[in-house]
Every structure is written in C-alpha cells, then in structure tokens.
Amino acid sequence: MSDTTTRALSLLNLLQTHRHWPGSELADRLGVTERTVRRDVERLRDLGYRIESSPGAAGGYRLEAGSAVPPLLLTDEEAVAMAIGLRVAASQRLVSGPETTITALAKLEQVLPAPLRRRVAALADAVQPAGLNAGAAVSGEVLGELALATRDHERVRFTYTAASGEVTHRRVEPHALAPADRHWYLLCWDLEKEDWRTFRVDRLASVEHTRVLFEPKPLTPGEVEEFILVARSWVRQAVEADAVMELPIEAMREYFGQWGQGASDAGDGRTRWPVGGGDFRETMYGLSWIPEGVEYTTDLRSPAREELRETLGRMLRALDAPPPEVPPQRAKERALPSA
C-alpha cells in the first residue's frame, strides 16, 4: 500500500472519529502540510466520501452523508442490516455498553445516503423483539445526533417538552447518554442555567449542531450515575408529597446535593422538597433522609397518611417494649468476638 493511500486512510479514520477537524490540526496529526491535506481530501471525495470544507480561522473539514454508500466493503443490504441491528440494540438495550452502540450507529448512519436511512428507519420500527418493554419511543436520528455531539464535545440546541407540557429551547454542552428504566437520558451542562441538567431524550426534538466545541467539565462515573438516578426519581410516583423543612434552601442543597433538585424556597428560612415513591414505605424512606434535628411538615394524603401513621405507631411500640428473649444459640453467637 502506497504512502499516499495509507495517509488517505489515516485521514478518513480521523474524519470518522470527530465531527469537525480544523485543517491545521489534521496536518499536525498526519505530519504533512495543509496543502497535502487538501489533496488527500480530494482523493477521498473521488472515492465517494462527501467531505465538507469551511474557510476561515474556525474552518476545517467534516464528513457528511453522500449520494451513495462509500467503499466500506459493505453492500447496501449489509449496511442497512447493520444499522437496523444497532438501532434495535440501542433502543432495547440488548447489549452492554450503550454509548458504544449509539456511537457505532451514529458513525454508520453518518455516511448512509438518505434513501437507505429511510429504509433503516422503516424497518427498525417494524422490528420489535418480543418480551421487552422499550419504554417511550425515541427517535434514532435524535439519539445519533446527540451521540455525535457528545463524542465530539460540540454544543447543541434543541427543543424540550417537559412532563407538564411546557416547551423550552435549550443550549447545552452534552456530557453523557445513558439508558435507565426504559428511557434514554441526556446529561449536559445547561449554558443558560449554568448548571447540570438531565433530559429525557424522548421529549427532545429539533437537535441543531452549533459547530462550537467545548472543553468537558470533569465528572466521575459515580457522579454521572447519581445524576441519572435523580432524573429517574422525577418520574411521576404513585404516592407523592411535599415536605416543608425548617432549613434554609442553601443548607438543604448543600446537604442533599443532586437529590435536592426540585426544592424551592418556602420563605422564613424554610425549604419545600417534593418526595414520593411507589407506595407509602418508599415515601417514608425519602422522608427519613431529612437531616437529624430538622423539623418538618408534610402534606402526604390519605390513605398513605394513615398507613404511614399505623406503621410508625407499631415501630414505636416495638422500640418501647422489652426486647424479646434471645435464644441461647443466638446469644452465644453474639458473644463471640468478630474475626
């Protein structure tokens, strides 16, 4: 294989790993001049790859979909079959590593011509594995665009419809895509709110790439997981209530961290915090996390209110009563020193 061919393939690999590359950076990566990069781009165009170029200080190159499938050693049918499989795997979470599945899908659909993308969409909608609940329908195109922006650290705009029906326009720096409880979530830095936000992907529409790159803010995998767990808790619960605690909202947010989302200032140094669960026991568990010594009131409604009162009454009576007699064997085990 000639040096020219090897260099052209290296250029193609770089173009497939990021959505936008400045010409000067490509030249540095390949160890050639920008003039040579321009010639290699033309060679790839002659092979069927559609590569868009933009002039200026922020200009560069990006790989776009062409009028035919580029030479990926795949037939149209094979490319469609692969894209359908990736779409189904991504939406149903049949494989581990959801980000890998989504980015692979995005990379493949990025070079599929429009007629084949339409075939993929139609067939993927018809192929539904039995026995799996996919949750809310998610646009494969939206998932793909968000995956590309997350991979490339590119700011995006989109329209978001909240559970209340409120429609807002957001400008964000996407950080991670993750599935949880049959839904997909986007974790991102909201540029207007200047804070982290988590959005349900099925409520997203009109994703627009800004071509503005950003330096990702540091987050550990544990922090990402916590953000997603908090977002899951915002699904409407069977038993919901507000707790108004004698604690200023700043102190409350410092104590609860991300779990303090949704809290609001109730005035007079108090904080209103929504809490809920599948039944009164889960709601009781949430209330138990209110800091020790902090008094609060709650509007928990019937019948959960009476069920919780009865359960707490029995617990208090059990704690006040003499402890049950411990069987001899259990008493002996308790007396043994721990290893």
Results as ranks from 00 to 15, higher is better:
256 F>E: 01
159 T>V: 11
241 A>G: 08
282 E>H: 13
63 L>S: 01
20 H>V: 07
331 A>H: 08
218 P>T: 09
298 T>N: 03
181 D>N: 13
206 S>H: 12
159 T>E: 04
52 E>A: 14
298 T>P: 04
191 L>I: 13
69 V>S: 01
94 L>H: 05
220 T>D: 09
102 I>S: 09
135 G>H: 00
62 R>D: 05
110 Q>G: 15
217 K>F: 10
30 L>M: 05
321 A>W: 05
324 P>F: 09
85 G>C: 10
129 P>T: 06
33 T>I: 06
293 G>V: 07
107 K>V: 08
68 A>Q: 12
326 V>Y: 00
168 T>G: 08
46 D>G: 15
69 V>W: 07
191 L>V: 12
227 F>P: 03
289 W>H: 15
121 A>D: 14
99 E>R: 12
275 V>G: 02
237 Q>V: 06
97 G>M: 00
244 V>W: 09
25 E>I: 04
61 Y>S: 01
207 V>T: 02
138 V>T: 04
308 L>Q: 09
192 E>I: 10
140 G>F: 07
207 V>N: 00
192 E>G: 07
257 G>V: 06
248 P>S: 08
270 R>K: 14
97 G>I: 01
297 T>P: 01
4 T>P: 03
52 E>R: 12
258 Q>T: 13
113 P>V: 00
101 T>E: 10
152 D>Y: 06
324 P>W: 04
221 P>A: 01
281 R>S: 11
184 W>R: 07
149 A>S: 02
21 W>P: 02
175 H>I: 05
81 A>R: 10
134 A>T: 04
294 V>G: 00
19 R>D: 06
178 A>M: 13
327 P>S: 12
227 F>E: 08
141 E>V: 11
79 A>W: 00
116 L>I: 09
266 A>W: 00
304 A>C: 07
315 M>P: 01
215 E>V: 11
